[in-house]
């Protein structure tokens, strides 16, 4: 694997994925809710739709950096950000608007929805994956990043 795909982390990726799925299972079976980060984030900042508990949303969102900090205290976590401010701002606007319009992101549609065999989430995941691949290919062709 690592000669074919240098830098890939199949083992750690799968293990980290299991944790993400465990978190989704706790939200679903424990609280009856989808662990969809975009929806919970919107709810946490007070601009979400629906009537879900804001305390639950805030608690889940608070946990994300806590968990990441916990891992970073045990082992190095490599993070490389795009250097361009414009890239971050344009990307953020599209991610914020798009996830609300499309009712979900990688977690809600990509993990919770796919595992539920939801046709709606399968369609959304296929579309955002395709758009992601096409965008990076286009950026490469245009010589950006």
């Amino acid at each position: 694997m690592n000669t074919l795909f240098p830098g890939a982390m199949p083992g750690m990726g799968f293990l980290g994925g299991l944790l993400i799925g465990l978190a989704g299972a706790i939200m679903l079976l424990g609280l009856g809710r989808i662990a969809g980060v975009s929806g919970l984030a919107a709810r946490a900042v007070g601009i979400g739709s629906g009537t879900d508990s804001r305390a639950v949303a805030l608690a889940f969102i608070t946990g994300l950096p806590l968990g990441a900090a916990l891992v970073a205290s045990l082992r190095p976590v490599a993070i490389t950000f795009p250097s361009s401010l414009a890239v971050l701002v344009i990307g953020g606007l599209l991610v914020g608007f798009g996830t609300r319009l499309g009712s979900g992101c990688t977690s809600g549609h990509g993990v919770c929805g796919l595992s539920r065999l939801s046709p709606r989430s399968m369609a959304a995941t296929a579309l955002f994956m395709a758009a992601g691949f096409a965008t990076v290919a286009a950026m490469r062709a245009l010589g950006w990043g």
Binding site: V37, L94, V95, G98, G102, S103
Partner: peptide, 18 residues
């Protein structure tokens, strides 16, 4: 449309909400 816009932003920045 939402999924497509999200995917474009995801591709541009390499970040999704989580």
């Amino acid at each position: 449309v939402g999924a497509l816009l999200f995917g474009i932003g995801w591709g541009i920045a390499g970040l999704c909400p989580g």
